[in-house]
Design a protein around this nucleic acid. Sequence first.
DNA 1: CCTTTCGACAACTTGATGGTTGTCAAAACA
DNA 2: TGTTTTGACAACCATCAAGTTGTCGAAAGG
Lengths: 107, 107
Amino acid sequence: MSDELGQVFAALSDPTRRAMIEALLREGTTSVPRLTAELPITRQAVAKHLATLDHAGLVERAPAAGREVRYRLRDGALVPAGAWLAETEAAWDSRLARLKGAVERKR
Amino acid sequence: MSDELGQVFAALSDPTRRAMIEALLREGTTSVPRLTAELPITRQAVAKHLATLDHAGLVERAPAAGREVRYRLRDGALVPAGAWLAETEAAWDSRLARLKGAVERKR
DNA sequence: CCTTTCGACAACTTGATGGTTGTCAAAACA
DNA sequence: TGTTTTGACAACCATCAAGTTGTCGAAAGG
């Protein structure tokens, strides 16, 4: 469907995937076996989550030696989601502020 | 399960629900029939989406006259999600910047 | 008073999600 | 060489998500 924003938010909605992102933030780059050691799920489940993050564009495969497959964060991948949230939050707040102002003025 | 952040992100992952939020931003407050007129889905589907937004804490029921049920945005509801995204994005960027710096320094 | 509208449920279909087990070939290692 | 890891698939299961149709009673409107 190519709802990019939706895919990013969906990817972030799973706590396991957020944990993976946080691990990536800590460790810079990681791999399936590595994450499998940190998480209480199977290798296959980890691989699936990484594929989801990949499809959402949050993560990409990094060149690695041998058969190893490493993953790293994709530059700028969070920007659209962050921008949408920031804009929406701003509009949200200003609307509520205006409402509040109207109430104040009324009494 | 009570994964608040997850529920918010999940709520935002659906384009129909984002459209509802944007309508709410434009119109201040809305109702099931109103949204049904704007969207290509049934009254019942609209009600379900509103319930989802309600459970995620993004929206709340506003007092209304008669049998009408109006919905409005909940103050501060986006803050945790926005904060998580902003923090993560910052860590993300600084990590990438550091990496880039290391590469520059190396050659 | 009769008809329409609205909210609240319930049942159902279809498809996606998160997880599992199992298999296999290639690479790494003892 | 033989054993263990790793990645890549596939099948499967249970649950949830998005949407539908249908029903019902209460409120609004003619």
